Simulated assay, not measured.
Amino acid sequence: MAHPVMFDEDDPLLARVRALCLGFPGAAERISHGRPNFFTTRTFCYYGGSERIAGEWVAHDHAILVRPDPDDAAALAQDPRFFRPAYLGPSGWLGLDLGRPGADWREVGELVDASYRVTAPARLVRTLPEPGAAS
């Protein structure tokens, strides 16, 4: 049984995430478990997810799920803006809900960039400028 589509194609936050993610070398998009999934050979960003709090499912329909840089993961996990997504959290993924006021798109770009660098093949990562370099 196929998963139902759990996003709105006209979502302006999705449009921004899509443009950001598809700007990376070799990046493509597919629908996985009803949600947009951005990948090269492995996924580097999901749009939308959920978490389990006190036995209840909490949806984050306007969130990004990313694999943070290992050097930053512990600090980000302590930041109350981030959540541990269901199913992916045990593998080191974190979620950031973009539907909350004050989303910092520069930070979003840095998070997606770090996730891409952690998951993409080395040959693609080598084509990127150094993190933090002026573009």
Rank of each mutant, 00 (worst) to 15 (best):
L13G: 03
A86K: 05
P131Y: 04
A73C: 07
L111C: 09
E110K: 09
V125H: 04
S32D: 03
H3M: 06
F82S: 00
M1E: 12
G95I: 06
E56D: 11
D72L: 10
S91V: 01
P129V: 07
L111P: 08
R16K: 15
H3T: 03
D79S: 08
S32Y: 00
S135A: 11
G48M: 01
G132K: 05
I64E: 00
A103C: 09
A86R: 08
R84H: 10
R100E: 15
H62I: 01
Y47L: 07
D97L: 08
A103R: 04
G34M: 08
P90R: 10
L13N: 03
L111V: 09
D104T: 09
A2K: 14
R117Y: 11
H60T: 05
G99K: 08
R100H: 13
P68S: 12
T127S: 15
L65A: 06
P121V: 10
T41Q: 10
G92T: 11
R35N: 01
D97T: 07
L20V: 14
A28D: 10
P70N: 08
G92D: 11
V17F: 14
F83L: 07
T40D: 00
C45M: 11
V5A: 13
L13K: 10
A122V: 13
R30Y: 00
P80D: 05
R106C: 02
S32E: 01
A103N: 05
G92W: 08
G55S: 02
T43A: 12
I53A: 12
H33T: 00
L111M: 11
A75F: 00
A19Y: 06
N37K: 01
P85F: 03
H33C: 02
R126T: 11
F39E: 00
R100S: 09
F83C: 08
V125A: 05
S135E: 07
E130D: 10
P129T: 08
V108H: 04
R117T: 10
L13R: 13
I31A: 01
P90H: 06
A54N: 14
P4T: 11
D71K: 04
L96I: 13
R30L: 00
A134R: 08
P4M: 06
G34H: 13
D69T: 00
W93T: 02
A86H: 13
D11Y: 10
Q78E: 14
R84K: 12
L20G: 09
P85Q: 09
P129G: 11
R52V: 15
R18M: 05
I31Q: 01
G99A: 10
A74P: 01
G102R: 04
H3V: 00
R117A: 06
R16Q: 15
P129I: 05
